[in-house]
Design a protein around this nucleic acid. Structure first.
Length: 473
RNA sequence: CGGGGAUUGGCGCAAUUGGCUAGCGUGCACGCUUUGGGAGCGUGAGGUUGCAGGUUCGAAUCCUGUAUCCCCGACCA
């Protein structure tokens, strides 16, 4: 008999997700509408994402800095497409210190404008380029509907902003950031994503081009999991930011910006979790290994503690030897928390110098000699990490459908959903109608997509390549 | 912003032709027995029923207003 302590993923993904995020103590609803509290267990995930990415960001020569939370309204208005994109979701401060402000302040939804105003001040010559900065910060977007981690009014992210003397360097940087995201998802989070370029209507307001990584969720919806924007000279021109080049001529810098947010944590939970709770890949798991001595087994508790002392410097580990909870309770608790490996040690194991090793992803158990523990754990950590990535990659592939008829397209969208690879004429009109009729939007033109003559799935006009469609999260 | 649901001990819920001291589960505290897949028994703490008005001898229950939250849509990282 299994009692239900959390909602089941297999029954209702949405309820399962909300229930689990709160019960596993990753986050909780804050008293402020649309906002959440990220609790220590959830924040530990974010810190691991930060340290993973930060290392690569710094290696690339991008420096961390911090810019203000407030942006003068006039700044945002300088780039027309940019302000149009964000206007509906801005939080605006009108009163400060009891006084009506002469110029309203926007709580940043993103920091392009305020950063570039400063970049302009700091640079006069082509010799001052490139400017490469990143900030880890919070931003606010007044979304109508919220969802823990995936869509909250305030969220955490990193935003990188670089300016270059040549478009070539700019393009190289845009791709570098996109690859960083791809690497973060695959190597750290064990998630498979499709990278590519956004359509005109889906791109970032003010950008020339937007590159994205799209991740398929278990319900067949796609999560925009990170973006890298080629801003061209748009912002430089809007802000009248020009430098002198080597010939003394006017040079507008080529710019890019790129961001990855705490939304990634929502994706992580959804992609890997199961009916028993969270499943964390070892690389991201705040705790990789938990040792559970069977309560009341004195000899085993002693052994468990010595094993803990031996392993704790090598793995992020914990021992759960608190009295008052039964073994079964502890097993379920740690499974819900997604810890990749659990060691169970009772007197039965202590007598034969062994431990039961349980892997979270498959729940398989094996009895391992203490002497062989490290070897087994090392291997398991690798196996679990790669198993989870493979599983998600396979899921994504199994749910990516190449279709040539609109009927087929509609059928998939009304049943399993998923990624649909289809020809599209690239007209915004067709894109809007497809969305209206099927809920699917273009996610991207995938990298490496071959040119292929075809006809638009909707209007029948000639098309050059297949785009990736899905319902967005 | 459109549609739906909800608000009662920490959490999940019950309690209407308006009526007794607002119950139950879980969690919490204490004690004893337990402890290999969410233990058992006993004792106990914890609620002016979201808020503001109104009707009434009497309101969780009826009326008016209001706030907040969740779900489904449209928008977005």
């Amino acid at each position: 008999m299994t009692k239900k302590f959390i909602k089941l993923k297999s029954e209702d993904l949405s309820e399962w997700y909300n229930d689990l995020v709160v019960k596993a103590e990753l986050a909780d609803y804050a008293p402020v509408k649309g906002c959440m509290v990220i609790r220590p267990y959830g924040y530990a995930i974010w810190e691991r994402i930060q340290s993973f990415m930060d290392k690569f960001i710094k290696e690339k020569g991008v420096q961390n800095a911090y810019f203000p939370l407030f942006i003068p309204e006039s700044f945002l208005k300088k780039e027309k497409e940019h302000v149009a994109g964000f206007a509906p979701e801005l939080a605006i401060v009108t009163i400060g210190g009891g006084q009506e402000l002469t110029e309203k302040l926007i709580v940043r939804p993103t920091s392009e404008t305020i950063m570039y105003e400063m970049y302009k001040k700091w640079t006069q010559s082509w010799r001052d380029l490139p400017v490469m900065m990143n900030q880890w910060c919070n931003v606010v977007r007044w979304e109508q509907r919220t969802y823990l981690f995936l869509r909250t009014t305030e969220f955490l992210w990193q935003e990188g902003h670089c300016a270059h003397a040549t478009d070539q360097e700019n393009q190289e940087m845009v791709q570098w950031a996109l690859n960083l995201y791809k690497k973060t998802y695959s190597d750290l989070l064990a998630m498979y994503g499709v990278t590519g370029i956004k359509s005109e209507t889906e791109k970032f307001g003010g950008a020339s081009k937007t590159y994205t990584i799209e991740v398929l969720m278990p319900n067949g919806k796609a999560l925009q999991a990170g973006t890298s924007h080629d801003l061209g000279q748009n912002f430089a021109k809007s802000f009248d930011w020009s430098l002198q080049d080597q010939n003394g001529d006017k040079l507008y810098p080529y710019q890019n910006s790129w961001g990855l947010s705490t939304r990634s944590i929502g994706g992580l939970i959804m992609v890997h979790g199961d009916d028993n709770g969270l499943v964390f890949p070892p690389q991201i798991a705040p705790t990789q290994l938990v040792i559970v001595p069977i309560p009341g087994h004195e000899k085993a508790i002693k052994l468990a503690n010595s094993i803990f002392d031996q392993l704790k410097s090598k793995y992020r580990s914990q021992i759960d030897d608190l009295a008052g909870e039964t073994a079964g309770f502890k097993f379920n608790k740690w499974e819900m928390k997604g810890v990749p490996i659990r060691l169970e040690i009772g007197d039965k194991e202590a007598d034969i110098d062994s431990a039961v090793v349980v892997r979270r992803d498959t729940l398989e158990k094996q009895t391992v000699k203490i002497a062989d523990l490290e070897k087994t754990i090392d291997q398991l950590l690798i196996d679990i990490q790669s198993n989870l990535l493979e599983k998600h990659q396979k899921f994504t592939q199994d749910n990516t459908f190449s279709v040539d008829s609109y009927d087929e397209f509609k059928k998939i969208m009304s049943t399993t959903r998923g990624f649909i690879s289809a020809h599209w004429c690239e007209s915004a009109d067709c894109e809007a109608k497809i969305k209206e009729e099927t809920k699917a939007t273009t996610r991207c033109l995938p990298d490496g997509q071959k040119d292929e003559a075809g006809v638009c799935i909707h209007c029948g006009q000639p098309s050059k390549h297949r785009w990736l469609f899905a319902q967005s999260y």
